[in-house]
Write a protein that binds this DNA or RNA. Structure first.
Lengths: 337, 337
DNA sequence: GCAAAATGTGGGAACGTTTGCGCAGCGGGC
DNA sequence: GCCCGCTGCGCAAACGTTCCCACATTTTGC
């Protein structure tokens, strides 16, 4: 099942057989057809490693992501995979668990494997520097690194959070709590900023006691509930903006447990959509961050970069922003008094 | 950053450099250390493609799966990935969408890339035949193919469904509905069989009108609700066993919409756990199929197979069954009358 | 009708490793 | 003192492609 065997059986040289199958180079039609026929009959399949070694590209693309359990991420992974498939690439999946060390290690091994491109959600500067030096086409996803090694595809987080907050303000809410992620990741920072911006614009004070910041996981959501409900009556929020669906997974059950009714006692708006939110009772109003679109856009950009490899000016990168959409459901109503 | 360069700088031959770094073969300690030092300083990284070509193994493992959105599958993917990582392997992810043609194509390209092993959830006979012929270590996951190309790691679906059904029978339910998947996949068939077996054992008749069979997706769950509620009062079920969490995502909202109270009007038990079920109101009792354990077991077996490659008797495969566990929550109570 | 260009084909180097084989040197057992 | 075996190392052959170059043959242009 060598190419050599195919050549032998076809009665041509190795190089002619190669050309006949690859389509590049000059081969007579009859020869081409004969060789193809033989290859087919023999069940010949080119060895991707050998080809990769020779051409120094592997038709592999690496996706570096913090985890798969988060809905945005497995959605992205699936979309990316599917788009790569039609372009003839394969996906090498790397899960870092958010660990910078892991991220760096993965970037290294991806390079070892001669991947043709890398999509990365993380933001470890060292890893990115590594990446830039290798010159592998790169696109950053969902998180904006300080020193990008390529194009960035991000959510319009500031605008999204602003619009979400405005929506609540529009319903006459004045005490709007925020469950925010760490400001170290750009999406976290920007959503926070969007919230504050909207309040400023409306002339509503931004109160520390209404702001809860922590890792975006269920426990944080639950903790936020505890803290917010501990506030004396008049200082309690009438609405809450949760900036990530995982935190919402903790917040919603905690609210239910404490018999806080949505939306009567508290309006809830969540950034990022998820099955759980859609099917919650009541259905939760969300800002859909369009993870799938982001994945799609990112992979298209990457493929384009890979194709244009030659004239690539790696230093010139562009930032893309995918807008979020408000999906109004039943969890937000006009503030009482 | 060639090995050749490392050798040159170290003042040794190519082969000595190779041996010094790989650790195999005889090299003096001083040479070894010098070469390693130089390699480090030069930032040498071995070319995985070249190495793979020479040794004909790539340190890549393929995971062929139908989708990532299903919680069992992305859990499996993540677990598999993490285990592979510590063993020094990388994961090539292939999503088939359940399409047999895709599955075959993926198996082919995985072989082209000289993957060291394959884990596959699908069950297309042609793809499996392909796989067996290549002799690549294989383990089947979650679905038992007719003609396995390697070991199988499956859920104890029959026993699980039987136990789940027994649980409902134990609560005096006699009209237990079943939302089942297509009998063509073994897990679907076996869960169905487990249900029937439990009924038989209890001497409870198994009625067609209580059995709904369809693709395991939300729409099916909703449809099942419509059909079950259309039954005249006395013939309606007092409990329902949903054999997959995706179907439950349709069933639960449909029940709520129709004001069927769980568990007062209807007890619900779901095969497979999911966030949504844990946090539903009321929390849904489930049979946890332990997808993570299955993934873990499967990848361990695969790694073992890969390591023992030489003496591998490919024809001899073993079937493993991972037991399911009943997680009692609040969705099942003693039948009324 | 002849040079020039185009066409089809083969030879062989290269991609970056690993690894079997052979050779030199050296120490120990008798 | 001789032979054997062991150690450390280098040479060179693979692994399976691609692709540049050269050569022969045909076609084209004038």
């Amino acid at each position: 099942m060598d190419l050599r065997q195919v050549a032998a059986v076809s009665g041509v040289s190795l190089s002619t057989a190669s050309r006949a199958l690859s389509g590049s180079g000059r081969v007579s039609d009859t020869t081409r057809q004969r060789v193809r026929r033989v290859a087919e009959d023999l069940g010949y399949r080119p060895n991707a490693l050998a080809r990769g070694l020779r051409t120094s590209h592997s038709r592999l693309v690496g996706l570096v992501v913090t985890n798969l359990v988060n809905a945005s991420f497995h959605t992205i992974a699936e979309v990316v995979h599917n788009r790569l498939k039609v372009a003839g690439y394969h996906l090498v999946l790397c899960i870092t668990g958010g660990d910078a060390e892991e991220e760096r290690a993965y970037v290294e091994t991806l390079r070892d494997h001669n991947v043709d491109g890398v999509m990365v959600v993380g933001s470890d500067p060292a890893a990115i520097e590594q990446l830039r030096r290798t010159g592998i086409p790169t696109v950053h996803l969902a998180r904006q690194p300080r020193n990008p090694a390529g194009d960035c595809v991000l959510g319009a987080d500031l605008e999204g959070a602003r619009e979400a907050t405005r929506h609540l303000l529009g319903l006459s809410h004045r005490r709007i709590a925020l469950v925010a992620g760490p400001s170290t990741v750009t999406s976290g920072y920007e959503r926070f900023a969007g919230y504050r911006l909207a309040l400023d614009e409306a002339g509503v004070p931004c109160r520390d006691e209404l702001i809860f910041q922590g890792p975006l996981e269920p426990a944080s959501g639950a903790e936020a509930v505890a803290r917010l409900l501990a506030l004396p009556g008049r200082r309690r929020p009438t609405a809450v903006l949760v900036t990530n669906h995982e935190a919402a997974f903790g917040l919603l059950p905690a609210l239910r447990e404490r018999r806080v009714r949505i939306p009567d006692d508290l309006s809830v708006l969540c950034y990022e959509d998820a099955d759980l939110l859609r099917w919650w009772d009541p259905a939760i109003t969300v800002m859909n961050n369009n993870a799938a679109r982001m994945g799609e856009l990112a992979v298209n950009i990457l493929l384009e970069r890979i194709a244009a490899k030659a004239d690539a000016d790696a230093a010139a990168w562009t930032e893309y922003r995918v807008g979020a959409q408000l999906v109004v459901r039943d969890s937000c109503v006009v503030a009482k008094s």
